[in-house]
């Protein structure tokens, strides 16, 4: 058996050494460097921002920050009213947008005739709304919720309603995607046992879509937590020295108290602002972690 002769006689080179040209190899390397640089830019910027904020705010990052209310004296100034204001607004608008959003997603995905003009118009509308700048929602809220017909004034209720409108399209779109991703075989299996449409949706489709719905909704809520523009128009940019007690209360939120503090002439107030940024970041990261945990839990169990 003459192995050598076979290799030599074939149309391939007589060895298996790398035949790639040096030019091609260096192009590979350059491309990799470009990718590294891009990643580095993103990571470094974030790292630098967090670092400077931490350095500035570290001195004020203590318990009094979260137990005290805003005060004319920087050493006493705290952000408790903003934390509670943010929680009030975000939790109420989160629940409202989850219920309304999931409801409309179920209707559009499971019941509406997907080929009809009206359904397509609604779908297009919702997708467009998801991209509307938040300040537009603020103006809308100012005209129709704070003033005008509803006349709720500058209150938690107004802010919650406006943030609900803002988050709703995101929840609807992501919930629809999650419902769409439920395999048809699951529905067929359920229908084949005599289950009704609603039984199938409630007991099979929604449970299977929970990870997607939860992820989308929590991401929408994090957006509401960091939102400032519409709330500037709705009276949140104020010194509020008490926690909200209901939908009618005055309120402020973390992003706006940060804005107020960081614009102050006094260094000490700017330090409070930096510390508030860290609190907001911690809240945002915990929300995102919650989304990941919910997603993994409901996936892992099956």
């Amino acid at each position: 058996m003459n192995v050598n002769a076979d290799v030599v006689g074939s149309r391939f080179a007589p060895n298996l050494r790398d035949s790639t040209s040096t030019a091609r190899k260096s192009r590979d390397k350059i491309f990799l460097l470009v990718l590294w640089f891009a990643t580095l830019c993103a990571v470094l910027t974030l790292f630098f921002l967090i670092l400077t904020t931490l350095l500035k705010g570290a001195g004020r990052l203590n318990l009094s920050l979260v137990t005290n209310f805003p005060s004319p004296f920087p050493e006493d100034a705290g952000i408790q009213s903003a934390i509670f204001g943010s929680l009030w607004v975000v939790i109420t608008s989160g629940f409202a947008s989850l219920f309304i959003g999931l409801g409309s997603a179920i209707y559009l995905e499971e019941f509406a005739n997907s080929t009809s003009r009206i359904t397509r118009l609604i779908t297009l509308n919702i997708q467009t709304l998801a991209g509307v700048p938040s300040i537009v929602f603020g103006i809308l809220g100012l005209a129709f919720v704070a003033r005008g017909w509803l006349g709720w004034g500058f209150s938690v209720g107004t802010a919650s309603a406006v943030l609900t409108m803002m988050v709703l399209p995101v929840v609807v779109v992501s919930s629809r995607e999650a419902l769409k991703a439920v395999p048809p075989s699951l529905r067929e299996g359920s229908y084949a046992l005599g289950a009704t449409k609603w039984q199938t949706i409630r007991k099979q489709v929604i449970p299977a879509a929970v990870p997607g719905i939860a992820t989308g909704s929590i991401l929408g809520v994090s957006r509401a937590l960091g939102e400032s523009a519409p709330l500037i128009l709705l009276g949140a940019l104020a010194y509020v020295s008490s926690n909200p007690s209901g939908f009618g209360s005055d309120y402020t939120v973390l992003p706006l108290i940060i804005m107020k503090f960081t614009q102050d002439a006094q260094d000490e107030f700017r330090a409070v602002g930096a510390a508030a940024i860290i609190v907001l970041l911690v809240l945002l990261v915990s929300l995102n972690l919650l989304a990941i945990v919910i997603r993994d839990r409901s996936r892992k169990s099956w």
Binding site: P183, S185, L186, E188, G189, S190, A192, L193, G194, A195, T196, Q199, K203, Q204, P207, A208, W302
Partner: peptide, 25 residues
């Protein structure tokens, strides 16, 4: 009743898979 080409158990326990039909009916 119907059995499909690809096994399509529900994302539930073995028990709940079998119990689903009687429960919805």
């Amino acid at each position: 009743g119907m059995v499909f080409q690809k096994p399509n158990p529900f994302p539930k326990s073995i028990f709940d898979n079998v119990a689903f039909g009687p429960r919805v009916n």
